[in-house]
Simulated assay, not measured.
Amino acid sequence: MPERIIIIGAGHAGGTAAITLRELGFKGFLTVVGEEEHAPYERPNLSKGFLSGEETEPVWLVPHERWEALDVAFKSSNSAVAIDREKSEIRLSDGSYVTFDTLILATGGRVRTLPLPHHDAVHYLRTTDDARALASKAKTGASVLVVGGGVIGLEAASTLKGMGLSVVVIEASDRLLGRNIPSEPAQWMTDAHTRIGVEIRLGCALSALTDGQNGAVTASFDDGTSQDFDLVVVGIGIIPNTDLAEASGLSVNGGIVVGSDYRSPDDARIFAIGDVAARLGSRMETWAHAQTSARIAAHAILGLPPELEPTPWFWTDQCGHNLQILGEPASADAVIARDNNVRLYMREGILVAAICMDKPREFAAARRLIGKTLNAELAADPATDLRKAV
Rank of each mutant, 00 (worst) to 15 (best):
N78M: 13
D84V: 02
D84C: 09
R85M: 03
R85Q: 09
E86P: 01
S88H: 14
E89Y: 01
E89D: 03
E89C: 12
R91Q: 08
L92M: 09
S93A: 06
D94T: 06
G95E: 11
G95V: 04
D101R: 10
D101G: 11
D101Y: 04
I104R: 03
I104L: 06
T107Q: 03
G108P: 02
G108D: 09
G109A: 14
V111P: 00
V111C: 12
V111I: 07
R112F: 10
T113P: 00
T113E: 15
P117F: 08
P117Q: 05
H119R: 11
H119V: 08
D120W: 06
D120Y: 05
A121I: 04
Y124Q: 14
L125Y: 00
R126E: 12
T127C: 02
D129L: 10
D129I: 05
A133S: 15
L134A: 05
L134K: 09
A135H: 11
A135F: 00
S136D: 11
S136Y: 00
A138I: 08
K139I: 06
T140R: 14
G141T: 06
A142C: 10
A142Y: 15
S143Y: 00
L145P: 00
V146W: 00
V147W: 04
G150S: 14
V151T: 14
L154A: 08
E155N: 02
A156F: 14
A156L: 13
A157C: 08
L160R: 06
K161G: 04
G162V: 07
M163V: 07
G164F: 15
L165W: 07
S166R: 14
S166A: 05
S166Y: 03
V167H: 05
V168A: 02
V168M: 06
E171I: 02
A172I: 11
A172N: 01
D174F: 09
R175A: 08
L176E: 02
L176P: 02
L176H: 09
G178E: 05
R179P: 05
N180T: 11
N180L: 12
E184Y: 11
E184Q: 11
P185M: 08
A186C: 08
T190D: 12
D191N: 13
A192F: 04
A192G: 05
A192S: 13
H193R: 02
H193V: 11
T194M: 10
T194D: 14
R195V: 07
R195S: 13
I196D: 10
E199Y: 03
E199V: 15
I200P: 01
I200L: 13
G203H: 11
C204E: 13
C204L: 12
A205R: 15
A208L: 08
D211L: 06
Q213R: 14
Q213H: 13
N214F: 14
